[in-house]
């Protein structure tokens, strides 16, 4: 459905995308996460055909997005990070125009139904400048979906939306997925990726730092065991990554073998009759993974998004 191989994009001397390999399968929602400046939007714009790759190849629906822009425009939908619609038009006028600008679409949704679907049924005839930020994002979504696309690019689609509008948008995205539409999403809301993504990747400094299903991405990072030790506790058994300087009563263990190390700790406590107060054990969260990867070096190479091609 969508592939990138050794993709590189530069702005002058600055390399925004540094050789990423990526595969998105038909019918899935693939979320691209990363801090500001990580290269998400540049990557997305290359898929959309707005930016030429400086190196590497990109294929969207089996086509080169630069060479087959017109054909792909009829088969894809795009929500930009910032709305780009004339402020003095009405939502209805914009959608009517859009249906004329995508004449080869397999079908067009009814304009008023499309606006009602995103919750703008009561705002069809007001000027766009009178819409709130969240309403404009919903209008962007209506434009992107009007030509019944096979593939949708959503660049931070729920930014500026209130919680209700965000839930409605999530519902629309789930409907798209149920209809077999493929979605590529970038977002700063990690809970959005957790709720919607079949697979996700985290970009950092122009590279993919990790990728996979949510479970895979989280499992690759260490979980945490925390507890308070009594002052007279005997010597702990060795753990791979232990944060306890001896003066503090607080114990923190980071482990990729959460169950094994928790069992060892509990056995040690029972053997030495030690009470572990405030004991907590948890897998890594997506937020933790994101924080760790955003702060660290990217060492992985190859297509992390393709299970069969992982190094």
């Amino acid at each position: 459905m969508l592939t990138a191989r050794a993709l590189r994009c530069r702005y002058g001397a600055f390399e925004a995308v540094r050789g990423i390999d990526l595969t998105v399968h038909e019918g899935e929602l693939f979320a691209l996460l990363g801090t500001n400046g990580a290269g998400k939007t540049t990557t997305l714009e290359t898929f959309e055909g707005h930016r030429a790759a400086d190196d590497g190849t990109v294929e969207v629906l089996g086509l080169d997005p630069r060479a087959h822009h017109r054909e792909l425009a009829a088969r894809t939908g795009v929500v930009f990070q910032q709305s780009g619609l004339p402020a003095e038009l009405t939502p209805r006028e914009v959608l009517r125009l859009w249906s004329r600008l995508t004449p080869d679409a397999r079908r067009h949704l009814d304009v008023d139904e499309a606006l009602a679907r995103v919750g703008l049924g009561h705002r069809v005839a007001v000027r766009i400048r009178q819409l709130s930020g969240g309403e404009r994002r919903r209008l962007d979504l209506a434009v992107a979906l009007l030509n019944d696309p096979e593939l949708v690019f959503l660049d931070e689609p729920t930014t500026g939306m209130d919680p209700e509008a965000r839930m409605r948008t999530w519902g629309i995205i789930r409907e798209l997925l149920a209809d077999g539409v493929t979605v590529v999403l970038t977002t700063h809301y990690l809970e959005e990726a957790e709720a919607l993504a079949d697979r996700l990747a985290i970009m950092h400094e122009g590279r993919l730092a990790t990728a996979g299903t949510l479970a895979e991405v989280v499992a690759a990072q260490p979980g945490t065991i925390q507890a308070e030790l009594p002052p007279d506790a005997p010597q702990l058994p060795p753990f791979p990554e232990r944060r306890h300087d001896g003066s503090s009563a607080r114990l923190e263990l980071r482990t990729t073998q959460l169950q094994r190390d928790l069992t060892r700790l509990l056995r040690w406590a029972e053997d030495h009759d030690v009470e572990l107060s405030g004991l907590q054990a948890a897998d890594a969260s997506l937020a933790q993974v994101f924080h760790e990867l955003s702060a660290g070096e990217v060492l992985a190479e190859g297509d992390l998004t393709d299970p069969e091609a992982r190094p």
Binding site: E48, H50, R70, A73, A74, V78, F80, Q82, S83, G84, L85, P86, A87, W98, L101, T102, P103, D104, V143
Partner: peptide, 17 residues
């Protein structure tokens, strides 16, 4: 103004040349 408001960029996502 159309470029500043990203309207030209939006139109270019259509099938229009």
């Amino acid at each position: 103004s159309r470029r500043e408001q990203l309207v030209l960029k939006r139109w270019r996502t259509s099938q229009a040349s």
